[in-house]
Design a protein around this nucleic acid. Sequence first.
DNA 1: AATGAATGAGGATTCATTCAT
DNA 2: AATGAATGAATCCTCATTCAT
Lengths: 197, 197, 197, 197
Amino acid sequence: MRPAPERRREILDTAAEVFAAQGYDATTVRRIADAAGLLAGSLYYHFDSKESMLDEILASFLRELWGRYDAVLAAGLDPRQTIEALVTESFREIDRHRAAVAIFQKESRHLQELPRFGYLADAQHRFEEAWLGTLERGVAAGVFRADLDVRLTYRFVRDTVWVAASWYRPGGQHSPEEIARQYLSMVLEGIAFITRT
Amino acid sequence: MRPAPERRREILDTAAEVFAAQGYDATTVRRIADAAGLLAGSLYYHFDSKESMLDEILASFLRELWGRYDAVLAAGLDPRQTIEALVTESFREIDRHRAAVAIFQKESRHLQELPRFGYLADAQHRFEEAWLGTLERGVAAGVFRADLDVRLTYRFVRDTVWVAASWYRPGGQHSPEEIARQYLSMVLEGIAFITRT
Amino acid sequence: MRPAPERRREILDTAAEVFAAQGYDATTVRRIADAAGLLAGSLYYHFDSKESMLDEILASFLRELWGRYDAVLAAGLDPRQTIEALVTESFREIDRHRAAVAIFQKESRHLQELPRFGYLADAQHRFEEAWLGTLERGVAAGVFRADLDVRLTYRFVRDTVWVAASWYRPGGQHSPEEIARQYLSMVLEGIAFITRT
Amino acid sequence: MRPAPERRREILDTAAEVFAAQGYDATTVRRIADAAGLLAGSLYYHFDSKESMLDEILASFLRELWGRYDAVLAAGLDPRQTIEALVTESFREIDRHRAAVAIFQKESRHLQELPRFGYLADAQHRFEEAWLGTLERGVAAGVFRADLDVRLTYRFVRDTVWVAASWYRPGGQHSPEEIARQYLSMVLEGIAFITRT
DNA sequence: AATGAATGAGGATTCATTCAT
DNA sequence: AATGAATGAATCCTCATTCAT
């Protein structure tokens, strides 16, 4: 009588994959249905609308992500450790929900206009708070460079991480932790070869 | 009395702006027409289709960009100077054609499937050649770190630059050259504060 | 200041050719304009509308045709001679205005619904009068077979003639008179070989 | 509960009727939908496009027709019997699928240009083979007149038969077989009254 | 006479969604 | 849970027509 939650998840994962590949607007419910092995109309037994599928994908991704982020932020780490932990958690999240991250990345900006997706704007603000705050504390503590525009730095770090969702494939040759390590090394120390004493 | 091409450009710039803001698929021709001050049907006096507007926007952006890139690559600079010049030209391009860059960034992946937009895939390959090649030469020459995955570095630098199109606003407080300088500084030397001797 | 009548004719002939080839509805004014060597909008200097081009083509064809038919019908010929003359005049008309005849043939039926083209229905009635009347007189006079349904015979003869417009090409190997002769021979004597005494 | 194909056929028959009455190009899908009792958009649940409706109408008509023709041609009849049988089958086909025949007659010529309707040209060639071949054998056998241009005769017979679709109404006073008999009598023996010994 | 740019109505088609079964 | 048929609104696009130049 009640919809099986596993089927929901299955369909939702399929939908996320298709949304990520084609873009939300370019995706028809029929394509999702085809990929999930049922007819378009049948999707409506499980979901209210195409939009609510998207909503569920994004909301559950953010819920999980903030779970991790909040744990990091509450751990009392120093700024550099915090940045390292946030980056690592981000790559783990990309590993777990690549499609959702890609959708978030691509569609966030224009979805924010819709009341239903107002929480995407909130998420952006919380991101900014978390990352920018950490960077500022780091600059104050002398562990991050003071000669750079912090906002620019913030965007740099943020984009650096999330854009990876557009090319990352789970099960590739690097684990998320390894990718995180390399990214962090680049971001923190730069790619130029320098003799350090 | 006035030469026609100006109107074309006008409309095309408008279209690019709307595509960048809403996404290509989510943009209706009516919206473009509204923004350009004519009726939807009238667009078809100037253009064959919505798709051919997109085509023209992307193709002319890439044409211009490659003009700049080729000049840089032909200038006989060393690897580090080449990277610096490429990044600077990229930010200048973002400054000139922010919308086109944003569209390229967002829609490239799924447009490549369409035969008409096959040249987008070609462009990716040429990018890779130019950037990756330069990085490899730099590693060989000892100016870039050898302990990083070069492909990862390539994606890092490339994405880091282009994603800027999604938040950059021309006429902001930093000139494209200033942004390029800060970006390069971050990418090359890292954001961590380090005592260098 | 006043439109040159020759240009009108030129355009009208072009239009007739295109209408005949593609069908009236499937023909765009742009195609006519292309074929006539001007821009679509410029047609409206010469004509009120696409429909009025069609009107002029059909009306002038019928005007000319009835001139010939009336002459035949007034000539006091016997039924067989009348049929022969009508057929011959018809093929001459096809020779002169193939396109107009083809259009008349193809579009007549559904154009009749439009008030403006009511005269097409009138023409059909006058045709019927002329041909059917002649056939009936011929049957009464014993020169045409009495064992056939006269209406069927009428349609047979009428169609036989006009359908030729769909394949006839002026300047082919047979003159219109020669084609008329052969058609008449078929219609009157049949295609079966029979020993007549 | 009811098998779907019936609805398809229903709609297709309606469409054929409208196409025949108004011409393919002049027919809007809305008119078909109105006549079939659903909304325009709903047609696309059953058919890909307006064009594919036309395609299906014409293709299935030709399929059936060639079934009958092939049976006749394989029956080993003499030329005169063959012509008689082909004509009779043609009128039966007109009786069964008047609309399809009328469409074929009216639209065939310009549809042939489209790749999708290339089979219409093929059909013309097979017609020519069948009819013209039979006539030539008849001339050689001395049962058809040798003093007429055979190609002209072919067109004469062919058109004479098919044009009937434009005025024929099923359920009229003559059965298709009766019409065939009269037509054959006219075509074979002519309409002129002649004393035969 | 003709052009170039535009209009506006209408056309085919798509697609999210509904609902009886 | 899912299907099959349909809805209706919206979308891209076409095209006859207009009109200032």
